[in-house]
Amino acid sequence: MGHVPNWGAGGCVPAQRGQTRAVGDVLIVDDHPLICDALAMTLTHAFGLRRVRTAASLAAAQRLLREAAMPDAIVLDLNLPDVQGIEGVMALQKLAVDVPLTVISADLDSDMVSAVMAAGAQGYVSKSLPRPQMIDAFQRMWAGEAVTPDEYESDRPSEETGEQMRELTRSFATLTPQQMNILRLICQGRPNKLISYELSIAEATVKTHIAAIMSKINVRNRTQAALLASKARIFVR
């Protein structure tokens, strides 16, 4: 994952809390413990957080959101052991509808940033940001501003293209968890019989789900479904 940012050292610039959304409880979803510790230390020092919880996988984060109090904000790494791409963004937002979600990632590809923002994230932050800029980015996001990397601003899509991506993402967000599992296996090139075996469901059930998937995302075949999933960056390692 590269070097660990030195966010947590002394000298943090405290945020102007009066201008910021009331954030006191933050959930950080990242499988790198040093990243979690550094980010938790930085945000706690800057914003006076009363609690920071961490989860090392999407499944762990989902359990926490179902079983414990809802956080005021979520920080998500895209590359987790059980999920990659914007699938994690969509999954967590289904459970935490009104909670601002920030993606923090080393991947600054403009298409990925576009996909994440189209999925409804409040912002996209580079893991390599220096401490003061990192704090400033979170202060702006928690005040309601959509924040993206500086590198993205010069290459961002047109509003028309952005709306098309948002509409595409909304259609994928209507898939059930089982349909998302089947779509993932389709994207990996699995035939129906193997999907049936891997998910322990009848092949007829697989076909029914695939028909529903194609209807929801408005495609005519499996190949088109896989291509659209790739375009929307649903599954990316």
Rank of each mutant, 00 (worst) to 15 (best):
H3R: 14
V4N: 06
N6P: 00
W7P: 01
G8N: 07
G11I: 09
C12T: 14
C12D: 11
C12R: 10
V13E: 13
P14D: 10
P14R: 11
P14G: 09
Q16I: 11
R17K: 14
Q19T: 13
T20K: 01
T20Y: 00
A22M: 09
G24P: 00
G24R: 14
D25H: 15
D25G: 05
D25N: 14
V26L: 13
I28T: 10
I28F: 08
I28N: 03
I28G: 05
V29R: 02
D30G: 02
D30Q: 07
D31R: 11
D31V: 07
P33C: 01
L34R: 14
L34P: 05
C36H: 00
C36N: 04
D37K: 13
D37Y: 08
A38I: 05
A38G: 05
L39M: 15
M41A: 15
M41P: 00
T42Y: 00
L43D: 05
L43C: 06
L43A: 11
T44K: 04
T44D: 08
H45A: 13
H45C: 12
A46H: 04
G48C: 08
G48M: 04
R50Y: 12
R51S: 13
R51C: 13
R51A: 12
V52M: 13
R53H: 12
A55V: 08
A56N: 10
A56I: 00
S57T: 15
L58N: 08
L58I: 11
A59F: 07
A59T: 11
A59Q: 15
A61W: 02
A61L: 04
Q62E: 15
R63G: 05
L64D: 13
L64V: 08
L65S: 04
L65R: 06
R66N: 14
R66I: 09
R66Y: 04
E67P: 00
A68Y: 09
A69F: 03
A69N: 04
A69L: 12
M70C: 13
P71Q: 09
P71F: 08
D72T: 11
I74V: 15
V75Q: 01
V75D: 00
D77G: 06
L78Y: 01
N79H: 11
D82T: 05
V83F: 05
V83R: 12
V83P: 00
Q84I: 10
G85Q: 07
G85P: 02
I86M: 07
E87V: 04
E87R: 09
E87I: 06
G88F: 01
G88P: 00
V89E: 09
V89Y: 03
V89F: 10
M90S: 07
A91L: 12
A91H: 11
L92Q: 10
Q93G: 04
K94P: 02
K94Y: 03
V97G: 01
D98W: 06
D98R: 09
V99H: 05
V99E: 07
V99A: 09
P100L: 02
P100R: 00
L101K: 00
L101S: 02
L101A: 07
V103N: 10
V103H: 10
I104D: 02
S105W: 00
A106M: 12
A106V: 04
A106E: 09
D107C: 14
D107H: 11
D109E: 14
D109A: 10
S110D: 14
M112Q: 08
M112P: 02
V113Q: 03
V113C: 09
V113T: 11
A115L: 03
M117D: 04
M117N: 01
A118C: 13
A118N: 09
G120P: 05
G120I: 08
A121P: 11
